[in-house]
Amino acid sequence: MTRDGGEAADPDWSRREIMITAAAAGGSVMSMGTTAAAAAKIAGPAGDRTIDLVLTINWTEHRLTGIEAHTTLLDALRDHLHLTGTKKGCGLGQCGACTVHVDGRRVNSCLTLAVMQQGKAITTIEGLAVQEALHPLQAAFVEHDGFQCGYCTPGQIMSGVACIAEGHAGSDDEIREWMSGNLCRCGAYSNIVASIRQAAAGKA
């Protein structure tokens, strides 16, 4: 479900405060109807603090119109673009569930503002596998049971891919150290290490 289109139950609230548009390639969900300028204007008391921006996520440009300037990258992904593969565990930079890649580097998306990431290449779990159905690390997580509930998993995998790319997957101890920003309350750590070890070996 997306919340584009449609009228609200209460006429007072029928204005759409946020326009989600996906520019160009990729066939993302599109929702048109009001112009960007109109959307910015109707944004209510916060109107003076709203902005338009374009984010490049998984090689697709997403236009966000009339969003609050202080919107985090995490909220932009989850609440505005409905890319909910990126998880919110704390919103405080303490758990790593929200890890994404920005220009290839791992970033806690709850600790950065969407507006700061314009013009950069953002990759989320939804865009990790390029050709195959699953990225080798995703496949390794399934094989080694690198999760139970799965909620920390997208963050673990984004972090794990970066950990390997950084050259921090040379030994189990090194993996443990460089994966310690990603909490897993189900306690799948050993299997996460095994998954990363395997994917790192495949790359070597």
């Binding site: 479900m1 997306t2 919340r3 584009d4 289109g5 449609g6 609200a8 139950a9 609230w13 989850r78 609440d79 409905h82 890319l83 909910t84 593969g85 990126t86 998880k87 919110k88 989320t124 779990i125 939804e126 990790l128 596998a129 159905a133 699953l134 995703q138 496949a139 997580f141 399934v142 094989e143 049971d145 999760f147 799965g150 909620y151 998993t153 997208p154 995998i157």
Partner: peptide, 24 residues
């Protein structure tokens, strides 16, 4: 291996707060 494994590793598994009815 978990039958729901692929959905959990590729971000397709939807948890409660991720359902977004229209006009949320």
């Amino acid at each position: 291996s978990r039958v729901d494994g692929p959905a959990k590793v590729n971000g397709e598994a939807h948890y409660a707060g991720e359902f977004a009815p229209k006009d949320l």
